[in-house]
Design a protein around this nucleic acid. Structure first.
Lengths: 345, 345
DNA sequence: ATGAAAGCGCTAACAG
DNA sequence: CTGTTAGCGCTTTCAT
C-alpha cells in the first residue's frame, strides 16, 4: 500500500502536523526536526497524495484548455504556449479538443468531466451566447478567439478586423483587385470567421474596390482539405481571382496546393495571404505571407486571467470586471505575395 | 458555498447514501425516491465533487500523456487520438510536452506534479534506462516510440527497421543509389533515430549499395528548421544525393524547402521519403511519400494498456507481463518519389 | 515549535 | 431498499 503522512510520522516519531510542515516548507521548523523527518520521508519513499491535498484546499492546480482541433498546428502551438505559461504559475493543463462541435463545447464549459479544473480556457467555435449564459459552473472561464459574447468573461483576441484589413491592404498595395475570401461560413452574417470576413469587405470598400460575392468561398471546416476544396470549387466556377485572403494558414496552404496542381503560379497569378503564422508556413515551397498573432501573449494573458481570478477568490476580493484583452499581431510578408526572395539557407 | 451531497440529502429529506445511490445510478432505488432526489439535485444545482470521489476511490480517472513537442503535428495528431481513445474508457487526458529534454522526461515519469494521474503514456526521446529503472511511482506506465528499454513496461511502437527498409527499398526501386539519411544523432550508435538509421543501412547493404557516411546528416532536433539546416549543410559540403530518407516528415519538408530554394527538382533530382504521414505532407506543393504509422492503433493500444493494468490492480489480478506491441504501418507513395500525379482536386 | 483533533465531500461496509 | 458510520490523506485551527 501507499505510504501516507501518518506512516512517515510514526517512522519519525513525530506528529502528522510536523511532517506536513516539513513537506510544505513551513517556516518554523527546527533544522534537526526537519532533517529527521526528511530522512523518514526518503526511507519510506513518501509522495504526497495530491488528491487529498486538493480536497482539503478546494483547489486542484489544474486548468483546462479546450481548443477545436489539435491537428491544426495553430492550436497545437498555442497549447504548448499555454502549458508553459501555466507551469510558471505552478498550474498543470488539462487539454481537450472539441472538434468545433457545439455539443462538445457546451459540455466542456459546463465543466462536465470537470470539477477537476480550477479554471478553464476555451476557444469556442460554435458555442452560442445562450449556451454560455446557461453555464452553472462557477470556475473562472476565459474565452479565446474571434467569437464575441456579451457576457462577463475575460476575452482574449487580437483585433481580427484590423488584421484582416492589413492583409487585404497588402494585397491591394501589390495591385491585386480580384481578391477572394476563403473560409467563410454559409451564413456570413454570423460567427465565426465573421470578423475576418468583415475586415476583407471593409478594406475593399475603403479602397473603392467592388466587393464581389462570387469571390467568397465557404467551407465547412478550416483544414487543408477545406481550403483545397474551396479553391477547386472557386476555380471550377470560372472565377479567376488574382489574390486570396484565407481564413487561416491551413486553408491558404490547401488552396495553394490546388493552384500548383492547376499550374497557377503564386504569387504571379494569385497572391495569397493566410492567418495564424504556423511553422509550416515558413517552410512551404512558396512561403506564406500571413497574419502572425502573438501566441505567447495570448497564452500568457489567458493563464494570468484565470490565475488572477483564482487568487482573487482566495483573497475574498470583489470579482474584477470582465476585460477584453487584445494582444498584438504583425503581418509577416513572405513569398506568397512578394515572390522569390534571397535564399534563407 | 458549493452544494454537497449532504445539502441535497437534507433538502430531499433522505440520507446521503440514498443521494449517492441516485448520483451513481445504483440499481436498487425506487423510481419515486429517485425522482424526489433528482429534483432536489436540480433545484440546488448540485454537481458532484470529483476530487472527493477520487480520494475515496483511489483513482482519478485521468491518464497522462507526455510527448516531446506539440508543435510537431505527428504528436498533436497522436494526442488527439489518445484523447479520443481515453474518452471511450471514460478517462480524461492530462497532456504534457517534454521538449525532448531528459530532465523533463524524468520529472514526468517520476510523476512529479502527478499523483493526479492514474497512469502515464510517455513518448521518450532522451530518457535513459537508468532513469526509468529509478522510477518510484507505481502508476502504470506505457512507452511509445522508437526507444527500447529492457524494463517491464508495455511498449508500443511500429517496426521502425522494417518501415525504414521499406522506405529505402522504394527509393532503390526507383533507381536511386546515393540515398542520404537526414536526422541522425551525432552518436548514431545510439538512440533515438537509431532504428531508422539501422534500417537505412541494412537495406542499402542488402541491395549491395555502398553505405556512404558522408550522406548521413545529423540534426539536433527534428523540426522543419533542422531538416532545412541539415540539407543545406549536406549540399554545401558538395554532396549531391539523388534520394533522401528523412527521420520524419518535418525534416523531409524542411529539406525540400532548401531543394526548392536551390533549384533542385523533387523527385527528378532528388526523391524524398519522410516518416509519420502528417496531414501537411498530403498538401505540400510536392506531396510527400512517407511511412504512415497507424496512429489510431497506437493510441488505442496505449490507452488499453494503461486502462487494462488499472482494472487489473482493482481486481487484484497478478500483473500481466510487459508486452511489446507493434501496430502496422504503410508506405504511402506520393509525388516526392513518383512525380506529378493526376489532379486530386 | 510541535501535537491533537476536526473535517474537506464522497463511497462502502454494515445494519436495519 | 435505505440509513448510519467510518474513513480516503491531507491541512488547519486550537492548544500546549
Amino acid at each position: 500500500m501507499r505510504v501516507s503522512l501518518k506512516d512517515v510520522a510514526e517512522r519519525a516519531g513525530v506528529s502528522v502536523k510536523t511532517v506536513s510542515n516539513v513537506v510544505n516548507d513551513y517556516p518554523h521548523v527546527t533544522p534537526a526536526m526537519r532533517a529527521r523527518v526528511q530522512s523518514a520521508i526518503d526511507e519510506l519513499g513518501y509522495r504526497p497524495n495530491l488528491t487529498a491535498r486538493h480536497l482539503r484546499k478546494g483547489r486542484t492546480g489544474i486548468i483546462g484548455l479546450a481548443v477545436p482541433e489539435l491537428g491544426n498546428s495553430y492550436f497545437a502551438e498555442l497549447a504548448g504556449a499555454v502549458i508553459d505559461a501555466a507551469a510558471q504559475h505552478e498550474y498543470t493543463v488539462l487539454l481537450d479538443h472539441t472538434q468545433g462541435q457545439r455539443e462538445q463545447e457546451i459540455l466542456v464549459c459546463q465543466g462536465f468531466r470537470a470539477r477537476v479544473m480550477d479554471g478553464l480556457i476555451l476557444s469556442p467555435l460554435e458555442l452560442e451566447t445562450e449556451d454560455l449564459a446557461a453555464r452553472r459552473d462557477d470556475a473562472p472561464l476565459v474565452l479565446l478567439g474571434e467569437r464575441r459574447y456579451d457576457l462577463p468573461y475575460d476575452h482574449i483576441v487580437i483585433d481580427n478586423i484590423a488584421a484582416a484589413r492589413a492583409a487585404v491592404r497588402h494585397l491591394l498595395a501589390l495591385g491585386r483587385r480580384r481578391i477572394a475570401f476563403l473560409g467563410a461560413r454559409r451564413d456570413h452574417s454570423h460567427q465565426p470567421a465573421h470578423l475576418r470576413f468583415i475586415g476583407w469587405q471593409a478594406e475593399l470598400a475603403a479602397s473603392g474596390v467592388a466587393v464581389d460575392d462570387r469571390l467568397v468561398a465557404t467551407t465547412s471546416g478550416w483544414g487543408h482539405e477545406d481550403g483545397a476544396r474551396a479553391m477547386a470549387e472557386l476555380l471550377d466556377s470560372g472565377e479567376r481571382p488574382d489574390g486570396v485572403f484565407a481564413y487561416n494558414d491551413l486553408v491558404a496552404l490547401g488552396a495553394m496546393r490546388v493552384m500548383f496542381e492547376r499550374g497557377l503560379r503564386v504569387p504571379e497569378d494569385i497572391a495569397v495571404v493566410g492567418f495564424d503564422d504556423v511553422t509550416e508556413s515558413r517552410y512551404a515551397a512558396v512561403t506564406l505571407t500571413t497574419v502572425s498573432p502573438d501566441k505567447e501573449a495570448i497564452a500568457r494573458l489567458a493563464v494570468e486571467s484565470v490565475v488572477g481570478r483564482l487568487k482573487g477568490d482566495q483573497n475574498h476580493e470583489a470579482p474584477r470586471a470582465a476585460r477584453l484583452l487584445q494582444p498584438g499581431f504583425t503581418l509577416v510578408e513572405r513569398e506568397s505575395t512578394l515572390g522569390r526572395r534571397p535564399h534563407s539557407f
